[in-house]
Nucleic acid binder design. Sequence first.
DNA 1: TTGAAAGCGCTACCAT
DNA 2: ATGGTAGCGCTTTCAA
Lengths: 330, 330
Amino acid sequence: MAVTIKDVARVAGVSASTVTRALTMPELVHPETRERVKRVAADLGYHPNRAARGLITGRTGNIGLLVPDLANPFFPSVVKGVQARAHEADYAVFLADTDEDATAEIGLVRKLSKQVDGLLLCSPRMSDDELRTIVGDTPVVLVNRRLARVPSVTPELLDGMRQAISHLTALGHRRVAYVAGPRSSWANRERVRSLRTVAAAAGAELVETGNVTPQFEGGVAAADQVLATGVTAVIAYNDLVALGLLNRFTARGVAVPGEVSVLGFDDIPLSAMVHPALTTVDLPKEQSGRAGVDLLLQLLAEPDRSPAARRELPTQLIVRASTGIAPRRV
Amino acid sequence: MAVTIKDVARVAGVSASTVTRALTMPELVHPETRERVKRVAADLGYHPNRAARGLITGRTGNIGLLVPDLANPFFPSVVKGVQARAHEADYAVFLADTDEDATAEIGLVRKLSKQVDGLLLCSPRMSDDELRTIVGDTPVVLVNRRLARVPSVTPELLDGMRQAISHLTALGHRRVAYVAGPRSSWANRERVRSLRTVAAAAGAELVETGNVTPQFEGGVAAADQVLATGVTAVIAYNDLVALGLLNRFTARGVAVPGEVSVLGFDDIPLSAMVHPALTTVDLPKEQSGRAGVDLLLQLLAEPDRSPAARRELPTQLIVRASTGIAPRRV
DNA sequence: TTGAAAGCGCTACCAT
DNA sequence: ATGGTAGCGCTTTCAA
């Protein structure tokens, strides 16, 4: 059995209460006693049982993190950010991968919510209504999604999209396709919304193709439709989809960027590793994770603040040398 | 406050004990009572507090998972496998990313070990001795590492290496470089060991270059040394390193696979997405995660089985069309 | 400044 | 088949 507070108390010759105090409210105990207790605790390798503590304090010291798909490199980056910040604040992280399944999401939330102080929902796929029911039960912060009166961390998509379209139009592109991600994705809806606004303002014609799974395969699947539209440039829902497009274009002998330019979203690490490198819009990833934890801790500290905190993090177009983007051929 | 067992007991008109029994040992309670209790529990949305339960049963229903770096796509795949299997068995997963830091690893293990039934250490970087101290405290299963008397899941590296070398020698390569990963990595030491054995048997000359970080940057850094050795083929510690090599070779105008062939390890998803695609040795990833959980559950169920269970999972050379491997030029 | 006692939510044991 | 009681490890009164 692990060493408990009683063991420490006995060895240090004090009561359990004093051990607690020495460790969590040091100023309330005599310096001499305090040091002795701390030394004994260290010697014995005592670490308080957080579950037992949680039973009393109502705080578990854990947070839950849900992501749709760890296989999409975007999410591991966010997770790393969450981990880093959480551990700094001495929180441990429950992780669940929902496999892009809104139903699984809800089940996992229920299961996790009992053992955590709060939940970080990253790009949740469930509906607004479903989200609402959860928000009622447990402190929740959204990453990559917004909902009225719920704290959230989101990227400045409108600005990112503006940068993307400016870049393309500066290179002479006038007809641009957008390969959409999952219909249930807020990120996708926001991209579409921003894109329409920005394209209209820039006088570019926007061609929207159907929704695809936000993975490599989605891009592969959409490539031929994109070519059929005769556009000179295509914006993909994310980098994985962009890579899928690239792959299928190459397979069909369509030169990138010679005949068609491809622009991605996310700036996953891999986008700089391929050749040609991907031109893409960098979304904050680690940073979103960290900011999400910050908001959650803040929410836990002062539960009845209003309105809900909302952080928007900047985005940045990344233009790389020898990339999949070129001026429009005349 | 959440609904507790007392609430259910009161509403159902029974004692707390009966509620427990109705829910966890249904056969011990009268069918009528059982149904009533279950209905009330469902109506009230009662879910037992796992922390409180764990206090008594000594079981938390949680497992801890440590990985060195989520940014390496190999690990998210393992994590997905762990998640999937764990949730099937109604376990929740604590995840910690150690950033390739052996010291951080130990700290995180200590912190997590109190709130989990067992630990899955994936490619741990700490020393054998450090590992030993942990194994004494908590049930541990190793993934991608071996240690005497500790259950583990590992890939059949020797066989994978044999496939790799056979492939290269069949294509005429006689001098092959190996770009090593972290010195603290068991996976790296095993690769080296297998490689020496297999290369000797195949009559190939092996040129070992220094250790690099197991990331894209590591490959970039090693590329020039590799070229200086004059080998016609190079095996990288993993796919990320292989991509780094590829990138730097290309930058220096060295044709791949024209002048030098590159072979990776892992078969991360991305290796099929790039162009040229990566020829690589597939290591079981999701499967290792699942197997690791299986072993851990088994260990928890029968703590004093011996000798330690040990599973070796098959590896497979993946040869792709238009890949970074070619016959040796004469 | 310290200790004793109560109790968090739950389950195990001993009654009945 | 069911209830009462004790106790898991810890913190928080309350009293001294």
